[in-house]
């Protein structure tokens, strides 16, 4: 796929813009986190499109953002686990 530019994005209807970005983000995330790729891509797609274009242009920034998403997921799962164990204890 050719790199996604702001003008390409602007030419597409809003509902297709996230799809276009997602199509490019997903393989990059799948390469490092195959089992979480769908979830992480969804989380990142909630970021503003301008910021997402920056991420697609900067592998380092994208890597940091992916690791942030993984950390958020892990913290959430830890909260869920501790919440379940505390409710089962009563």
């Amino acid at each position: 796929q050719e790199p996604l530019t702001a003008s390409m994005l602007a030419a597409a209807p809003p509902q297709e813009q996230k799809q276009m970005i997602g199509e490019r983000l997903y393989p990059l995330i799948h390469a490092t986190h195959p089992s979480l790729a769908g979830k992480i891509t969804g989380m990142l797609l909630e970021i503003d499109n301008t910021e997402l274009l920056l991420l697609l242009e900067s592998p380092d920034s994208l890597h940091c953002k992916i690791e942030e998403a993984v950390a958020v997921l892990q913290a959430h799962q830890a909260t869920e686990t501790s919440h379940k164990s505390s409710t089962t204890a009563f």
């Binding site: 997602g22 997903y26 979830k39 969804g42 909630e46 970021i47 900067s58 380092d60 940091c64 958020v72």
Partner: peptide, 26 residues
């Protein structure tokens, strides 16, 4: 590198590209 500030939510729906099954589930 550009600094991107935004809050990530676990409630976000999962995203799969079109043609997902053919390309990623071999």
């Amino acid at each position: 590198a550009p600094v991107v500030k935004s809050k990530l939510s676990v409630k976000a729906p999962e995203f799969y590209p079109s043609g997902y099954n053919q390309n990623f589930n071999q």
